[in-house]
Amino acid sequence: MPGNGKLRLAVWKFASCDGCQLSLLNCEQELLALLEHVEIAYFLEASRATSRGPYDLSLVEGSITTPHDAERIHAIRRDSKLLVTIGACATAGGIQALRNFRDVKAFTSIVYPNPDYIRSLRRSTPIRDHVEVDFELRGCPIDKGQLLEVVGALLAGRRPGIPTYSVCHECKRAANLCVMVAHGTPCLGPVTNAGCGAICPAFTRGCYGCFGPAEKTNTASLTNWLRDNGENRKTLVRSFRSFNADAEAFRKESEALEQAGKRHG
């Protein structure tokens, strides 16, 4: 930490929509308190003024999708004591990882008049595939309470209380009525990591899986149940292919469903 005793914070962006960084700015109430403990050394979304590393804590948003980014992340790692990735892009490749299931060249040739200018990697990958990551915060976007918890825990020198259990766990604690059981609405909650506070079931909608796979997942069993209850394979493939499409458990499930679809027509 620098002379002022504050934690030097940097916030970095890769392929992403900026929503997770905005969660930090959305901490309105807590932001002033945070600034008592934290010096914002690099955060372009908040200020043009930047200062050089090393940084005590780097928050990294976004996935790696270009050769340039694959280089840049190493420099950031070298400059950071702790590196925490934030959001579905940084931890699982994000929605842009849908390209991982297709040929990205085919896309660029359709979208751009001169695809030769496009330097894009074949796959969108999470930060931990490139450098060592100290902690991952899931979500699309992340939960600002969780972000403050991680920073607060770091400042207090304790372990962050970030759950690894399923959304169902939160749902039941909040006394939401289960939409799967009571309404027959498909829900990814049982295989999705907690963190959002089970917002969607609280509004009688199924979970979309924003926080990615939970610590234990049994996607095959969930799919079997939903299939037996009339859900079609294509819809299920799409449910697993959203913000966390390339997170291992979700990718395997959507691929297995696709394979089964091909076999059974």
């Binding site: 403990h37 400042l155 295989v191 997942t217």
Partner: peptide, 25 residues
């Protein structure tokens, strides 16, 4: 089994808890 813990949460006799600390900035 999905290891989702719904059964234990709705069970009227299950009593398990865990304890966590929070700190205010």
């Amino acid at each position: 089994c999905l290891a989702c813990s719904n059964c234990t949460m709705v069970c009227p006799s299950c009593f398990c808890t865990s304890v966590e600390d929070t700190t205010s900035l």
